[in-house]
Design a protein around this nucleic acid. Structure first.
Lengths: 365, 365
DNA sequence: ATGAAAGCGCTAACAG
DNA sequence: CTGTTAGCGCTTTCAT
């Protein structure tokens, strides 16, 4: 049990190598203008003393935190968030940056986080994922001096760079597909149980669907929407449980709405694959023949869909994350960005949960 | 375009409030021994100046980094890693700690990381997930002064605390199940494509299986093992591709081995659910009737298994993460740990991919 | 190519 | 309860 072992500092190395601290700093950081011999001596001393820099001290002295914050809604562990984060991590960690996740549970968390941003150099950049910022917040971002990069944020305003997919266009593609398959009544299903009372940019998908449906000539009677429970203002706090029970119940509730609909939809689009596969299972259990009588389309390209060959809209959050990180890197280095705001592609993956509806064939009432 | 806006520091607030910096520090941190009036004045000044602390400066001065590192093998985005991380994050972020992930791709990364640990106070604690450390490394951990906490590490040696599931016991349960269902030839399948050349503690599962099989009276002819490709020393660098192609190919390779086995197994255990569902799909495609003729068991309790009602061994990495974080917190606060090393439960979840083998019934050769 | 010195923004004794 | 005084460990002009 040795006493409070005082950490070895750059000064110890300097003494050991017989040079000044500034020389040690230069040598160990690989800067030029250091005599090779000196450098070798310093490195040997550092090695011998098992010295490594204190990031904290370096940060304070240099003004660069070597740290970027990633703001995520609800959880780090959803398919989209986790993949996005991984992409960001991949690029930034390689360049020596720490990538620190911050999960926002309620609107207030975001506001609070943003408030801590100005004035102090805690981060070299902030990457914001999927949040819908109000006008005031976006204006506020403009006052900040560090790079702010958005991923799937509805507006580019306030951001130095953004990367996103085009949800509207993707939904339009889905609606066109359903129409071309002969579906005259369609439905959009949102993820029933939101993990927290946050409105994030997934919610633009439903609008995109409705917009596309209108353009494709569907009238109100032939469009069914099943919004998430939280949208309905159900304030049951029980719902945000970990237990899958709530989710299973919610899924069967959705299935019931679908089955009991006045104008029963035969073309269904679900907000994400995770939800879609559960609904698929439930609907089949209730006797719906998919894809013979009903077509189901997911969204994401999550591997859960592979097992059941779910037709879906694929996106690549890993790439989204990488792209955002690349832009962040450039911005931190004051390099010019040829295209600050980019749109990443999505693609319709046709698999086994969609098929042409035989004309004249209708579901029994 | 205002000039380099110099950040507002604690000194600015002090001046504004007409007090000393230390008073500001105390007031804003909520320490006692501060006159309520003074505190109010300071808070007003801080608010007015939009002041927030520089974490970096605080860390340097106080010696507490308020940051803990989480070391993860291969990727942050596997089911186990992501859930574990989320659990850790949940607990630690609530207490004001930054939780910083570090992904290790090769053995060297770990060694390098560990080397940077001594001497400098970059982290207040380190949480290590699933790594197998050699004797020298474990001994090294003992020399460190900050808390080291392990999750699913094979040996408690070198760690101040650990949380783990009992893989051996769980595998024993699986083997007993298969035996009781009447399976006389059994197989263990490892995840074919490892994301990186890392050996992490998942590999103890196969040993557990073999051990259990021996104890339950299976002889070598009736045990088939299909180790991961990387174990076989296949050095194809192509394999670590992102494309699912490699994985799909690997799965069908496994299926082929199973189908072509001299003593065809009817009870199969797969390292994890993700892999299991893919294999399930492929085996069914090849005409195997599961569970009527063959039983399949996964591992994890990943929600991918829900869709196909996969029988599996459930574990709860979220809880593992929370538990580890709790211990970490206690250690950082020098609180005593009543039980430094704990084992979390797993449970066998019987679903639709296992069933009793009708006696006398055999697969056609 | 190297050293001396002045901070970076804050905390933590120690006085008062 | 509040102010004074030293640093925390490193980077960075500015000399030399």
């Amino acid at each position: 049990m040795p006493g409070q072992q005082t950490r070895t500092t750059i000064a110890d190395v300097a003494k050991e190598a017989g040079v000044s601290v500034s020389t040690v700093s230069r040598a160990l950081r690989g800067l030029d203008k250091v005599n090779p011999d000196t450098r070798a001596r310093v490195e040997a001393a550092a090695e011998k003393l098992r010295f490594t820099f204190s990031k904290t001290a370096s940060s304070l002295a240099s003004g660069k935190a070597m740290r970027v914050a990633v703001l995520l809604p609800n959880e780090i562990n959803s398919w989209f968030n986790a993949n996005t984060f991984e992409g960001v991590y991949e690029v930034l960690s390689r360049e020596g940056y720490d990538v620190v996740p911050y999960v926002m549970w309620e609107e207030d968390d975001l506001a609070r986080f943003l408030r801590t941003l100005p004035g102090t150099q805690n981060f070299d950049a902030v990457i914001v994922v999927s949040f819908i910022l109000d006008r005031a917040q976006r204006a506020f971002l403009d006052t900040l001096t560090i790079p702010m990069v958005g991923i799937n944020v509805p507006s580019t305003e306030g951001f130095d760079a953004t990367v996103r997919i085009d949800d509207e266009a993707a939904m339009h593609g889905v609606v066109r597909l359903l129409r071309s398959l002969g579906h005259e009544a369609i439905a959009y299903v949102e993820q029933p149980v939101q993990p927290s009372p946050f409105t994030c940019s997934d919610s633009v998908r439903m609008d995109g669907f409705l917009d596309a449906a209108a353009r494709e000539g569907y009238d109100e009677e032939h469009i069914l929407t099943i919004p998430s429970l939280s949208r309905l203002g159900s304030e049951d706090e029980e719902e945000a449980q970990e237990s899958v029970g709530g989710e299973a119940a919610a899924i069967s509730g959705i299935a019931a709405q679908l089955v009991g609909a006045i104008c029963r939809p035969t073309g269904i689009c679900v907000e994400n694959d995770r939800c879609a596969v559960l609904l698929l299972k439930e609907l089949r259990r209730l006797g719906w023949r998919i894809p013979e009588e009903v077509s189901l389309v997911g969204f994401d390209g999550d591997s859960v869909g592979d097992v059941v060959d779910l037709t879906t809209v694929r996106q690549n959050p890993l790439q989204l994350g990488r792209a955002a990180a690349g832009k962040t890197l450039a911005l931190m280095r004051d390099e010019p960005l040829d295209e600050p705001h980019t749109v990443a592609p999505t693609s319709l993956l046709m698999r086994a949960t969609t098929s042409r509806l035989s004309s004249g064939r209708t579901l029994a009432a």
